[in-house]
Design a protein around this nucleic acid. Structure first.
Lengths: 226, 226
DNA sequence: GCTTGTGAAGACCTTCACAGCA
DNA sequence: TGCTGTGAAGGTCTTCACAAGC
């Protein structure tokens, strides 16, 4: 799975949970920038993020030393560094598969572009959809997927097709070289080696909350996120 | 936080991760029912769910003994049992806050009702929205929240307001007695004791995937879900 | 034979607690 | 004094491995 013996820098492997928390740190730092706060301690960050200061310091320590003892972290600097680490200092081109009700909602969602995620092409299996232009985004046939991924430098796929077809769409995307997929279909597709999938599945979220709504008292601790 | 000394039945506390996996089990079991499979082993379930058989057996063992040695689990029976445990054998009334673009998309999403989640009322701070009827769902003022939660037996809140207002909406819902909240706003609200919040945040999902798209080779293992 | 249920072992992540430094 | 960065300790979740039973 890994390479030969030379063994490059190889920064100690970072737990996936940590990577998943970093974007939240970036977001809070963005809020602090807007509030014109210049320095922040791990304790203050912990309050905003509902975590412990230790967690934040430990997380950051996987990537470097960003703070100053006795003072804390420079808000602007830390935000910039984390964005660089996460790859958020650049734009990413996104391909959307499925322009049904859900796909259209995603296309019209204004939250992606400001964060650097640009939907540059849409795809659909239905020939009557192909050729359309929806809010500036062209709709292509699935057969054009490989070509368009190349030509438009698409590195992220968004899947918004019926659950029944999600797996094959994921497989197609992976074949075409896409290694990060955001899946809105109510199915957890089989994952491929080296490919990241994140599922957006509100029904599953609801279904795990109802457990705590049952019985007289099952909700002992009141946390939990995402 | 816990009670006195009598210490009732108190089934060993179930890890939250386990509760979050159960709905996926239920879903796969549903697929097996439709395929008319009658018996399934933890190994087979593990294949479909990309987990180990041991994980599944351990998870189930928190709730009872559902299998038969040498045979496996009765698909129908196991599904029924898990649904009962999760509270999925009944309907749940849901209140939606925010009927902007996102709220409307949620209202028209056909995936909730078949799973037993019925959106019975919508709320909005904008007086010009109040009084509408959207696909059979009335839009009420925020001042009616407490009353409607009572009258309509709303136990789950869905938040679809701008990030800026998410926290206060969550607080209002909690005040009104709602203890399970699905939050679509791009903010992680502070959680209250005894209240469950699940955040639907596609941008955060994207932002944690880009990390693995950076650099020559950082994506060592190719798993990860949600 | 095959598969469950489970204590014990192990891996992983979080929290503690303190040395080091501004 | 105040706060970071971090090894070590502690907890939690996962995996192993096997007794029990069909």
């Amino acid at each position: 799975m890994s390479q030969g013996p030379p063994l490059p820098p190889l920064e100690q492997t970072v737990p996936e949970v940590v990577v998943q928390r970093l974007p939240q740190y970036v977001r809070v730092l963005g809020a602090l920038v807007r509030e014109e706060v210049e320095v922040v301690s791990s304790h203050q960050l912990g309050e905003r993020l509902q975590t412990t200061p230790a967690q934040i310091r430990k997380d950051l320590s996987y990537f470097g030393r960003f703070g100053k003892q006795g003072r804390g972290y420079s808000v602007g600097n830390l935000q910039r560094q984390l964005k660089d680490i996460l790859g958020l200092s650049r734009q990413w081109n996104v391909g959307l598969v499925g322009v049904g009700r859900l796909g259209l909602a995603i296309l019209s969602y204004p939250g992606f572009a400001p964060e650097g995620f640009r939907i540059v092409a849409a795809f659909d299996a239905d020939p009557t959809q192909v050729g359309q232009n929806i809010g500036g985004v062209g709709v292509y046939a699935m057969d054009d997927l490989a070509r368009m991924v190349q030509e438009m430098d698409i590195s992220i796929g968004v899947v918004a097709v019926p659950g029944m077809h999600a797996q094959q769409v994921v497989d197609r995307l992976v074949e075409c070289g896409v290694r990060a997929i955001l899946n809105y279909a109510p199915t957890s597709p089989q994952t491929h080696e080296g490919v990241r999938i994140r599922n957006i599945d509100p029904v599953l979220s609801l279904q795990s909350m109802t457990y705590y709504l049952m019985g007289p008292e099952r909700g002992e601790n009141g946390q939990s996120q995402e």
